[in-house]
Simulated assay, not measured.
Amino acid sequence: MEEVNQTTVTEFILDGLTDNPELQLPLFLIFLGVYLVTVVGNLGMIILILFSSQLHTPMYYLLSSLSVIDCCQSTVITPKMLVNFVTERNFISYPECMAQFYFFGAFAVAECHMLAVMAYDRYVAISKPLLYNVTMSYQVCLWMIAGVYGMGFISTTVLAFFMIRLVFCKSNLIRHYFCDFFPLLELSCSSTFINEVIVLFLSSFNILIPVMTILSSYIFIIVSILNIQSSGGRRKAFSTCSSHILAVAIFFGSLAFMYLQPSSVNSLEQSKLSSVFYTIIVPMLNPMIYSLKNKDVKISLRKLIQKLSLHSTKNDFH
């Protein structure tokens, strides 16, 4: 029987997105650009909603919370990923790896439930407009946001608890660009059966329940849209809904591909490609999709720019 090396791993090496040297610089520049757009876009949405009194409504509070989640999730993953493109070996200590795993999981789960809450908010606004102020009061909105973050951190705390009980001694090379669940399990010398059962249960709950909520909300929304008399109004509503559904489909589709099947089924390249969508692409797209077609956001942005330019002109005059 082969003797297992029982030296406990204290630091890991992140394999990165690709080992092709010709792709390192182009990918570094692309993902740096994506990260900057993500941070500027999401922080811009948060600041705009904070300083525009006309955007102080439940819908925009939910949108600003989504921007916080996207900004945090991208910051947990992308900077460390960028290091992979400019260094020969990208080391990450065991505590840093566990922290990255924990916060990525918490924000990913929170995003699942936030998208569901936002779909429900739109359903109430379009299908039951007279009851909107009661159904989506500020208190209800705050409780929903608290519940979203609660689901994220409770789910990931359970996963992290069983993850830190594992002994890592096979290798210290994580075949991924961040400390994700299945690549970490590959390095464990301990039994990972309970971890795989828990992640399958939690993934099913945190992906399927929000997906069902979103689908049912948008079915009712589409029915309400079909009852709109104006063809222009119907076209505008469908245009907005289609962009929202596209963002949701990309996020949940890539997430389900990664976590709702056994680890043995996933190939390494497919896992990395799937992960790029929900960790990097979707956080960049969300502020664009949920705001660019929004008339209120455009008006508020114009007013804020005018206010800032007027303030700057007064300062220059003095």
Rank of each mutant, 00 (worst) to 15 (best):
F91P: 01
V109G: 01
A160F: 08
F153K: 06
L115Y: 08
A106E: 03
V134M: 09
L131I: 11
C97S: 14
M118C: 08
A108R: 04
M144Y: 13
N133H: 14
F162L: 13
C112S: 04
F104Y: 13
G152E: 15
K128T: 11
L82Y: 07
T156W: 14
L159V: 04
V148W: 07
G105F: 00
M81C: 08
F103N: 14
V83Q: 11
N84L: 06
T87H: 12
F161Q: 12
F153M: 10
F153H: 07
T156G: 02
C141Y: 07
I126C: 15
S74K: 07
Q100H: 02
V134N: 10
L130Y: 07
L159P: 10
S155K: 07
Y132K: 13
I154V: 14
E111G: 03
F162Y: 13
K80L: 14
A116Q: 01
E96M: 13
N90P: 07
L115P: 00
T135K: 15
F85K: 03
Y132G: 04
A110C: 12
S127Y: 11
G147F: 04
V140I: 11
S155I: 00
Y132C: 01
F153L: 04
N84R: 03
Y123D: 04
E96D: 15
L130T: 05
L82C: 12
Y94R: 15
I77A: 00
C112H: 02
V124P: 03
V117I: 13
L82I: 00
P129Y: 11
N133I: 01
F85M: 10
E96R: 12
L82V: 05
A99Y: 09
V117M: 11
I92C: 02
K80G: 11
A146M: 13
F162G: 04
V140W: 01
P95W: 00
C141I: 06
Y102P: 09
I145V: 07
V109E: 02
V124A: 04
M151T: 05
Q100E: 15
Y94N: 05
N133A: 06
F153R: 08
Q139N: 11
C97V: 09
S93H: 06
K128N: 12
G147S: 15
E96T: 11
H113E: 03
S93L: 10
V158K: 03
A125S: 13
E88F: 02
A108W: 01
E111V: 00
G105Q: 05
L130H: 13
M98S: 04
W143V: 07
F162T: 12
M151N: 05
W143N: 08
I145T: 01
V134K: 14
V124R: 06
F162E: 13
Q100A: 12
S127N: 08
K128L: 12
Y138Q: 05
T157C: 02
F104M: 09
W143Q: 10
M136F: 13
V109L: 02
P129I: 02
M81T: 08
I92D: 06
I126L: 15
S155H: 02
M98P: 00
Q73Y: 05
L142Q: 10
